[in-house]
């Protein structure tokens, strides 16, 4: 109790903590725990059966694999985009800046339909890839493209403000010490961006794992090949298998939670490594 009674400069600690916990419980914890409670009615064996059917396991691999890969790709290209938006002025910059947010605003189904139309065998892009034997629509590759599309703004928008704050002085200092442009980027600029990149990665990944609308059209939903986990859940729901659906959902929740925890840990680690308190 002595700890709680310690004098604080900012008033309202009790009130704001209470509010935070109540709100979190209401909005996040209670619905999520309902998932576990519902799935518990299956019993242990039923749960294992529902959550480890071959089709479901294949969907986990696809969902998490594609999401991680898409987030990683977005880190690279999102960084380049943010870089050019912050460092250079060019005509139409405002327009490009606004375009970045479009994947946020667009109904995901619209994105899915247009991507499918583009990458289908006879689509604008698909027709040129077809001769090379590259199929995008209705394959895991198509899923990856959809996930890259919806994840891009997360990286750009987390890195952009950090880059804007990064004083040109640091780069000038590096140059005056004899560092080349590449060395300056690798040793000075990039390390300062790592925390923001990790945050962006986590957000893009979380979004990709939960994505349904844009993926479902381009995926083709071939069992064991291009079925994502959210689709498995919907399928089970449509068959009135609520317990099975929640079982798959719980596995997804746990894995996502663990992955996000790891990313947070990484962030804390980089923060500590650079002398900032985590």
């Amino acid at each position: 109790m002595a700890y709680a009674r310690a004098k604080r400069v900012l008033p309202g600690f009790g009130l704001s903590l209470g509010f935070t916990l109540a709100y979190l419980s209401l909005i996040v914890l209670i619905p999520l725990s309902a998932v576990f409670i519902k799935s518990a009615s299956l019993g242990w064996e039923g749960f294992i059966n529902a959550a480890s059917a071959p089709r479901v396991v294949a969907s986990y691999k696809l969902s998490f694999g594609a999401s991680l890969l898409a987030a990683a790709i977005n880190v690279v290209f999102g960084l380049i985009l943010a870089w050019s938006l912050v460092r250079y002025t060019f005509p139409g910059k405002k327009l490009v800046d606004a375009l970045i947010d479009l994947p946020f605003a667009l109904p995901t189904a619209v994105a899915g339909i247009s991507l499918t139309a583009l990458y289908a065998k006879n689509g604008w892009v698909g027709q040129y890839l077809e001769p090379f034997g590259i199929k995008v629509a209705f394959t895991p590759l198509g899923i990856l493209i959809a996930l890259i599309f919806i994840g891009l703004p997360f990286i750009v928008r987390t890195v952009q403000p950090i880059l804007e704050d990064l004083d040109a002085e640091f780069e000038e200092a590096a140059a005056s010490l004899g560092a080349s442009r590449f060395q300056t980027f690798r040793r000075v600029v990039f390390p300062s961006l790592v925390p923001a990149l990790l945050t962006g990665f986590a957000l893009a990944f979380a979004r990709a794992v939960g994505e349904y609308g844009s993926v479902i059209f381009i995926a083709g939903n071939i069992p064991l090949v291009s079925e994502i986990t959210p689709l498995m859940i919907i399928t089970k729901l449509e068959q009135y298998d609520y317990e099975g659906a929640t079982a798959v959902a719980s596995v997804m929740l746990i894995v996502s939670f663990l992955l996000l925890l790891v990313i947070n840990g990484l962030q804390a680690w980089t923060a500590r490594r650079t002398g900032r308190e985590a």
Partner: peptide, 26 residues
């Protein structure tokens, strides 16, 4: 030329040692 900035421009993610070593390492 050695340049010293008003606001130091030390590299925040490097230790003091690595900051001083920077010019030698590059």
């Amino acid at each position: 030329v050695g340049f010293v900035f008003q606001h130091y421009a030390l590299f925040r993610h490097m230790t003091v040692f690595e900051n001083v070593a920077f010019g030698l390492r590059v």
